[in-house]
Design a protein around this nucleic acid. Structure first.
Lengths: 187, 187
DNA sequence: TATAAAAATTAACATTTGTTAATTAAATTC
DNA sequence: GAATTTAATTAACAAATGTTAATTTTTATA
């Protein structure tokens, strides 16, 4: 049991302990693909340490949709919940220490444990709301404003994530991001 | 009980009949605001007849996020579920015939009726997946491609919805939409 | 540590959208 | 049905991003 878990996520800690055999730990190197776009997801990850991105490839262009950090669940949810081919790939950015659970075991816990059900529902609805806000920022703001807001509100992303992923997250090219950075931080 | 409901949504029909007192019907004119951005949503609508849009206002710019038609539930879900001020307004486009249920009654049914719970969960996850795809189209495609795809895949929207709303749905100005239309459908 | 590979920046030009304003078309209402 | 309002289109110019390519910087690794 990772030490950090008990501090960060006491609820989950209890559940992992109770259903010990259902969970396992995994340490994976940077740039490791956890799920390939097009495959059906049957694994749910919880990040103990590290940083992960969820991306989509369209005509050879890879776009990062979301970043995940410590104490977050990661999965391609629509694929995980509906058994459909995933629209997204999931890849580690840094070396990651993960708690892993397979879908069958997850289902068992979901059926048996109202606390976990509640926690998971909270988590997915937060994720949904996250999506909504990210989406709104896309349609409300210009790339440059999105970058400024990233600095203001999500500087942890800027500190840990390579600029190429940030550019695609902002919906622009690395070239354009460089220009914005040069423009707004003179000297 | 609206006649069309039994055909289109037999599941819901049973539930509406069983919990008759919880639901009421409403007929509202075009351009009627069902929910004002900033207010907390406590109403869930089901469209029997008509067409509704969900929008967001940012610095005076109104952006349409989604359209809803017959046999769909409509609400500002994050507000409805979390009791937070809504990021969106909800407004009729045409005259609408609606089935309405207030949150307290909705909660009662959710608690008592697994069938409704399942139906509602299916509905919200479909809505989530919808969002994801709409979002992906935003970051993958140019406005012009989005318009072409709208013609190809969602022509019912084009037929029923004024172009100003479609422009904002595509993330562009009406001027730009006019240009695209002039460009791609010569003569 | 030197070498190679990958990432980030800069430059020049093309393309597209935004903006403002004028014009035409369509819908509303008195 | 005439008058008024709203919606859609067109035009001209400004502004921002995309594209391609070259250059510099950083990171990885032999």
């Amino acid at each position: 049991m990772p030490v950090s878990l008990s501090k960060a996520f006491p609820k989950l800690k209890g559940i992992v302990e109770k259903y010990q055999d259902f969970w396992y730990e995994e340490t994976l190197p940077a740039k490791y693909t956890l799920l390939q776009e097009g495959d059906v997801s049957n694994t749910l990850y919880f990040i103990v340490k590290g940083c992960i991105r969820l991306s989509n490839n369209y005509n050879g262009k890879e776009i990062t949709i979301q970043f995940f950090f410590e104490n977050e669940f990661v999965s391609s949810f629509e694929s995980y919940l509906k058994n459909t081919p995933s629209d997204f790939s999931i890849e580690t950015i840094e070396e990651c220490q993960l708690l892993v659970i397979k879908k069958e075991n997850w289902k068992t816990i979901m059926d048996q444990n109202p606390l976990f059900r509640e926690m998971f529902f909270d988590f997915t609805s937060d994720r949904f709301i996250n999506y909504i806000h990210h989406f709104l920022s896309y349609i409300q703001e210009k790339p440059e404003e999105r970058y400024q807001n990233l600095i203001k509100n999500k500087s942890h992303i800027l500190q840990r994530v390579p600029l190429q992923y940030i550019a695609s997250y902002l919906g622009i090219t690395t070239v354009s991001l460089s220009r914005i950075r040069a423009r707004k931080q003179p000297k």
